[in-house]
Design a binder for these strands. Structure first.
Lengths: 145, 145
DNA sequence: CTGGTTGCAAAACGTTTGCAACTCT
DNA sequence: AGAGTTGCAAACGTTTTGCAACCAG
């Protein structure tokens, strides 16, 4: 089951360590999490884990297509289990709120880019930016980023 | 003319300094530039300018709607004169190439977000990500970010 | 004159790297 | 045993902050 991990590692001569298992578990438990939050979560669960190791594990897990990451605004990237990656993030520059939407939203754009340029859009990799209804209403919006 | 700057500053009780004028000139000359490049440019032109001041001036100029910035990939943001802000950036995660396209590309998405959620899309603020034709062709693409 | 502005040095932030110690297989 | 892996400390690049000196109005 979770030994998609074990198998994929062994195939490549890599090792299954407690840290890697914990990082993957944390990503799956949190759904949306930064490297920092992942480390913290593992520690709350009684594990020990260096931030450096989290970065290396996430890199590895992304290579194995078990996790994916998204850039939302300026901060650190957020990691998702590969199974829950399929949505577009839309972020308000005013209040910082992030909404998840169906990838459907960008289907037309994806098609156009593919047909015209052969470009394969990764609709989930970066969050769309703008101003939500509330922040549009609130006069000259002091945008954050 | 360029004293949209002077006027706007005075209205708010702020001061027109050589540094602020130089930063705005550099942004206009370069069209696409990071804070670092802006500082360098000013120094090449014989001015002196601290990086800290560039950050503060850009913040200010953005507040005055004279410049705007875009996030392209992981690196520092790029600043544009407000007059040349109107295009979408599309970035390949494989080779890092960035293409500028008409904002038209996202017009449909912008309309949908506005109608459905009252969300005002800022189509230019972040670059769309994906893989260009070349990088799609090149086998298992080792994506960079 | 005097409050806005600058430069410098230092801190903050997220991320990466070198290296010795350690551990999975 | 031996290659892969970890943790630590230090370096990195970008951005922010505190503060004294400065200068535009």
């Amino acid at each position: 089951m979770s030994d998609a991990l074990a198998d994929q590692l062994h195939e490549r001569g890599l090792r299954l360590t407690a840290q890697r298992r914990r990082v993957l578990e944390a990503v799956r438990a949190l759904r949306h999490a930064t490297p920092d939050q992942i480390a913290e979560r593992v520690r709350e669960d009684g594990g020990s884990l260096n931030l450096t190791t989290v970065y290396r594990a996430l890199d590895l897990l992304e290579g194995l297509a078990l996790v994916r990451h998204t850039h939302i605004g300026h901060g650190p990237p957020t990691y998702h289990p590969a199974e829950h990656y399929d949505h577009v993030h839309v972020r308000c520059n005013g209040c910082g709120d992030v909404e998840s939407m169906s990838t459907e939203l960008l289907a037309g754009v994806a098609r156009e880019l593919m047909e015209r340029d052969g470009f394969r859009l990764d609709a989930n990799h970066v969050a769309l930016a703008g101003l939500c209804a509330k922040c549009v209403a609130a006069a000259p919006p002091a945008e954050k980023e």
